[in-house]
């Protein structure tokens, strides 16, 4: 088991390397630079700036330098937010994004799997159709439509909750963004759980349980465990994506998370900030893929640690 984890961990390193390399050169190939302002800078100032940030070096040297710094854990200074290092910016944004994403993932797993299992046990009844309808709506109505509607209803009309802002992560401020973030995921998980569970409920081993008097609760338990396998492999990458920030939700609710920093960084050609974000997100994706592999092996004994 430990060997399995270690091997998976090592095999993630080349992937990370590819991600970093690809993003680095893709970004540099693009026209424009971090200091292209509307009014061009004087050539002298431009040259000084370029030199200060090492942008005057040949591209491959910049790349090697970036890799070297990265190995030492240095993500470099931000080009645009001049007083901050990328690490500082990310350390500010990450807790915000993780709080939102964590809440959303939890809701998605609990409510999604619950609703899906509930519907599967009552296939083709009114309750089932209601869950399917809700899930389809959740998948199809984009969160940038849901968000303003909720803002109007709960923020302005009822005035129960604030329309936006972080406010140091006060619960009142977090509720709406988490719900908006979670809704589509709840829907996807519910659909998935329902489909997988209906499939399992038809399996021979479920019939065996029923033939032995182990109906109801036992059937639900065995069915749900099998149905959770696809959900786990879906939630891994999704969790990574949610924890590292939702661009839309952070923009609409004015929250200082990673997603917003990323978009601003990209728009301002803030190379180091963009790279830093990509590295963090990629690490999250890889870590969660690893977690999925481990969970999968724990849930399904047929997976061998080879």
């Amino acid at each position: 088991m430990l060997g399995f984890v270690l091997r998976r961990f090592l095999s993630a390193i080349p992937t990370l390397f590819v991600v970093i390399t690809l993003s680095f050169f893709l970004m540099r190939l693009a026209p424009g630079g971090p200091f292209d302002l509307e009014r061009p800078l004087e050539a002298k100032i431009m040259e000084n700036l370029q030199r200060a940030y090492g942008l005057d070096l040949p591209l491959h040297e910049q790349y090697l330098r970036y890799l070297g710094n990265l190995l030492r854990g240095d993500l470099g200074p931000s080009f645009f937010m001049r007083d901050f290092s990328v690490a500082q910016i990310l350390m500010q944004g990450l807790p915000v994004s993780m709080a939102l994403g964590g809440g959303a993932i939890l809701l998605a797993l609990v409510l999604g799997a619950g609703l899906g299992a509930f519907a599967a046990m009552r296939q083709n009844t009114g309750a089932d159709h209601a869950v399917v309808g809700f899930a389809t709506a959740g998948v199809t109505i984009p969160n940038f439509v849901v968000a303003p509607v909720l803002q109007i209803v709960f923020g302005l009309t009822l005035a129960w909750l604030p329309v936006g802002g972080w406010n140091n992560g006060a619960l009142r401020n977090v509720i709406l963004p988490v719900i908006v973030l979670a809704l589509p995921q709840i829907a996807v998980v519910a659909r998935m759980t329902r489909a997988a569970m209906i499939e399992t409920l038809r399996a021979d081993h479920i019939r065996t349980l029923r033939s032995l008097g182990l109906g109801g609760r036992h059937v639900a338990e065995h069915g749900l465990r099998a149905a959770l396998l696809p959900v786990v492999s879906y939630l891994g990458p999704t969790a990574a994506a949610l924890l590292t920030g939702s661009v839309v939700v952070e923009t609409i609710f004015g929250l200082p998370g990673i997603g917003r920093y990323f978009v601003e960084g990209a728009l301002n050609r803030d190379y180091t900030l963009v790279m830093g974000t990509v590295v963090v997100v990629a690490v999250f994706v890889l870590v969660f893929n690893l977690i999925v592999d481990i969970l999968y092996a724990l849930l399904d004994p047929r997976v061998r640690y080879e």
């Binding site: 990370l16 991600v19 190939l29 693009a30 990209a266 994706v285």
Partner: peptide, 20 residues
């Protein structure tokens, strides 16, 4: 394909669109 799956793809699309 596995490697590409690990790319933070929303971020990639944004990068593509912004830079190009």
């Amino acid at each position: 394909v596995d490697v590409l799956y690990s790319l933070p793809f929303i971020f990639f699309v944004i990068m593509l669109v912004v830079f190009f």
